[in-house]
Write a protein that binds this DNA or RNA. Sequence first.
DNA 1: CGCGCTCCAATTGCATGCAGTTTGGTGTCC
DNA 2: GGACACCAAACTGCATGCAATTGGAGCGCG
Lengths: 252, 252
Amino acid sequence: MAARASSKTSESSDKVSVICRALRRAIIEQALEPGAKLPEDALGERFGVSRTIARHALGQLAAEGLVELRRNRIAVVATPSWQEARDAFDIRIELERLVVRQLAGKLTKAQIAELNAHVDAEDRARGGTDAVSIRLATEFHILLAHMTNSPILVRYVSEVAYRCCLTLSLYSRPHSTECAINEHRAIISALAKGDEAKVMDLMHHHLDSVANRALVAPTPQRGRDLLDILAPYADEVTGDRVVKLPKVARRG
Amino acid sequence: MAARASSKTSESSDKVSVICRALRRAIIEQALEPGAKLPEDALGERFGVSRTIARHALGQLAAEGLVELRRNRIAVVATPSWQEARDAFDIRIELERLVVRQLAGKLTKAQIAELNAHVDAEDRARGGTDAVSIRLATEFHILLAHMTNSPILVRYVSEVAYRCCLTLSLYSRPHSTECAINEHRAIISALAKGDEAKVMDLMHHHLDSVANRALVAPTPQRGRDLLDILAPYADEVTGDRVVKLPKVARRG
DNA sequence: CGCGCTCCAATTGCATGCAGTTTGGTGTCC
DNA sequence: GGACACCAAACTGCATGCAATTGGAGCGCG
């Protein structure tokens, strides 16, 4: 049985889905950073659709946790707190352990080849940008989930993985992807051998180490504040003059 | 403004959210059976909103997996296959083990009292309909999830629990709720004692036995008129304002 | 009698328009 | 110079209107 994509609940080819996909990708590739404004008008114009459609797409992404929707206010790309990021990884670990548990020893040769091919692609992309590496690494996990043939599992793993992606852009430092790639290879190998306990353990530590490597400074709520970000630049500009920051500088 | 800033991603107080809640409840109480048609204008009429809003609500519920959306076709309540039902339970087991792992030994007296009160309510509802029992049992699990203070975990547990609810209406036979109630009490007790391993095991077997008891054989389904089914839920939404039910209920 | 065709009511897909809310800027007064 | 009141622009919330698609009843044909 091949990996037949079930078009049941999600992502057919209507305009809403197209916009969702585009925005999702823009978000996980960090083209749209957390906190970025997403006015319905602008989206509609950019994608050549009406506000109604853009609005609907934002609703879907909000349901996935990638976008924050506030009543009567402009939607923004979600800005998960550090704790939420950690929670997302905890959930992800459990879900992906379930994935590899179901997959251990049950993969066809073709599937193993597909996985290896994907990791090869990750390898080749090592020279590129972080954003692409992160996306490819995430897609490896989603590819695994697909092989379970469980649409529900695919959905949850995808969602939570995207959320983790989002948090990486917030809290991670430039990270070396090499060990992640090696860990991916180890997982494939253990899956092929059918060593269930081993592969669950590998996955657990893989994700845990990604999380620990990524979620470093518990930058509290202040961390995402524009004022802190701009502090060094402000020093340059104002020289030795003391800068008292006026009430609130709006994020823009 | 006493406005509770609150809920980041979902369920504020706009009309879409209200309708989502009403429909969700109608679905999990089996007032709307799997396969039931959900035409946009019928919903809009019943809830006193435009098609736009009904449509948006359907989109949200589709994202939760409760509703199936087919392009150019009438939306229907989702009809998970038996395998999907089993998958949902597997995921649920992992998520809820995570919940009780986080909660073991960390509950306040007030929280334990709240849990006990809920189970008492379940007990009192034993004479009532199956639908109410199932809803209360589900809400017990969601209440637990809430106590983790992890919005993401709450969302996933809620979603997957609702999906399981949905499958119960498809595949379950009238089941005795007593053992479930006892198992809930046992879980509370183990949580209070802080026995992490024990409570994870209890939760695992609790959900596993619910799944095994439930997922037996399909039951036929009969069609009822949507407008009639939704009447009580619409009352909630429209409040005391008179909602004129125009025309005739078609569809037989 | 069954099978395919045509046509129409039902229904969705989407854009647009209007009203209410928030935002950000300006003028005024201290 | 700074705080407050006020106003216009921007934006969202929602309803309505129109074109496109579907499902099925009715009809003709083999």
